[in-house]
Nucleic acid binder design. Structure first.
Length: 463
RNA sequence: GGCCCUAUCGUCUAGCCCGGUUCAGGACGCAGGGUUCUCAUCCCUGUAACUCGGGUUCAAAUCCCGAUGGGGCCGCCA
């Protein structure tokens, strides 16, 4: 028997009840990589059956940020537009006696431990159902869960087995036009011909329910693969209380999509070699589900920062300047490029550019005059140094006001001192007002002759 | 509490399937050093782990069993 090789079709199915979560983004990435690697299709399906909690603004955020990350889909669906389809299958299940209406009050949580549904309404007669309905009694639709062992081979974990008697008759819809998660997923995965369901481990215990439904509906079973969770520092599932969890927050702070992608890929996955800087193309090339980890991985911001620095340093000045525009709204293209070339090596996040380069955009610097002093200089020595600096710099023409020239002229002067810092530290502080900054020659060039001399004058006035 | 998943440096992990080549490799972090006026970049060095207990075997991080730890789920949310 030759097995027909079906096309690989995977999906990411976020619900628009919050901004794109880092965990959802990583699931999307893994699905995307798997699809691309196997020449398959990647589908985005918005799971907005819960009208109360769903919000268009979150849907927009999910779409925008997935695109921003470079995770593009081949097909797009919205569950709220597919209600008729679910209704059709709901009717079928109801008619075939695989599902039933339940008129019981909502499940009670007993001593903190929820109970399995008793099955009280399982065998209600048609008359009783009609009567209840006529009386306007509230009902939901439950699946008549057969008692059996449900086993499946997880792509990442191997054989997993559940006992359906511990699941009970779970709910599949609030009413005929309001399907619930486990049901809608099964219908959609079938209708969309999903071949592999790759999702977070938090869905592992939903899998037997979905398999039971697939069996009742005679659907082929997709392959399941459950990804390890992204954890907070306390090893519990990453959530708001651990800090920023949405892609948009990291985006606003100035993390690059390349860095986030590289970072997320290596949370729970590793190709085995020693190469750790990977572009999307390289990830696709090397991706494989059996290199996925089983245990959860802590979200380590230090590593994201490091990676972001790596990608920032890879940018051209022009690109980086454009990316930083948002953080320096008042700067023109030229200023932007000056600022960026001065601080590219020092940037961990784009947002830092504003504070780092504020001295470029100020007329008057405010700093403690003590900061001007290198080691234990006296005021007199300081004055001499500044005068000297002023004298030398005055003689350099506007035309020659270049980093290289400034260095060529100033360095021998600095060498003459017992310590180069005696000349260079006060210069740098006078120009930037900071104890840590880019080098004095490049800053002087960026500032230009006039402003440089002005700042040296101002420093003298301080003493 | 029940069910399920899981377990190598502080963190992300390689090695485990096919036991000996590993007193366990890389990266982040941290510490120290070099370059350097400062900070950063860059370069070098160091730091630190096979959860525990039983087996199996000449030999176990690697195979088996158990314990313990950690996590997830248990909704008329997804």
């Amino acid at each position: 028997m030759t097995k027909e090789l079906k096309q690989i079709r995977v999906r990411i199915a976020p619900s628009p009840t919050g901004y794109l979560h880092i965990g959802t983004a990583r699931s999307a990435l893994f699905n995307y990589l798997f699809a691309k690697k196997n020449k398959g299709k990647f589908i985005l399906r918005i799971e907005d059956t819960d009208l109360e909690r769903s919000d268009k603004k979150f849907e927009k955020d999910i779409i925008d940020n997935l695109k921003w990350l470079g995770i593009e889909w081949d097909e797009f669906y919205r569950q709220s537009e597919r209600i008729e389809t679910y209704a059709k299958y709901l009717e079928k299940l109801l008619n075939e006696g695989e599902a039933y209406r339940c008129f019981c009050p909502q499940k009670q949580i007993d001593g903190g431990v929820p109970q399995i549904y008793s099955g009280k309404c399982r065998d209600l007669s048609d008359e009783e159902i009609k009567k209840n309905l006529a009386e306007g009694k509230k009902s939901i639709i439950r699946f008549k869960s057969p008692i059996k062992k449900v086993a499946f081979k997880d792509l990442i974990r191997g054989k997993v087995e559940f006992d359906s008697s511990l699941i009970g008759d779970f709910s599949i819809a609030k009413d005929i036009t309001t399907p619930l998660y486990n049901f809608a997923v099964v219908i959609d995965d079938f209708e969309m011909e999903i071949s592999h369901v790759i999702r977070g481990e938090d869905h592992l215990s939903n899998t037997p329910k979905q398999i039971l439904l697939e069996e009742a509906l005679n659907f082929p079973q997709p392959q399941f693969g459950h990804l390890p969770l992204i954890l907070g520092p306390d090893r519990s599932k990453l959530s708001k209380r651990h800090g920023a969890t949405s892609v948009t927050e990291y985006r606003k702070e100035g993390y690059l999509p390349e860095a986030i992608i590289n970072f997320m890929a290596f949370l729970g996955w590793n190709p085995g070699g020693e190469k750790e800087i990977y572009s999307m193309e390289e990830l696709i090339e090397d991706f494989s589900l059996d290199k996925v980890q089983k245990g959860g991985a802590i979200f380590n911001i230090q590593r994201l920062n490091y990676l972001n620095g790596v990608y920032i340093r890879q940018k051209s000045i022009e690109e980086l300047a454009e990316l930083c525009r948002l953080y320096l709204p008042k700067a023109d293209k030229e200023d932007l490029e000056k600022a960026v070339s001065l601080y590219q090596d020092r940037l961990k996040k784009l947002s830092e550019i504003a504070e780092l380069t504020d001295f470029l955009f100020k007329d008057v610097l405010e700093y403690d005059k003590e900061l001007l002093k290198w080691k234990d200089m006296t005021d007199g020595e300081m004055k001499k140094v500044l005068d000297n600096l002023n004298k030398i710099l005055c003689d350099i023409s506007e035309k020659e006001w270049k980093k290289e020239n400034l260095e060529k002229i100033l360095m021998p002067e600095a060498e003459r001192m017992e310590d180069r810092g005696t000349l260079l530290w006060p210069l740098r502080v006078a120009l930037t007002g900071k104890k840590a900054s880019a080098g004095p020659f490049e800053v002087a060039e960026a500032l230009g002759k006039k402003r440089t001399l002005k700042r040296i004058q101002n420093a003298k006035l301080e003493i």
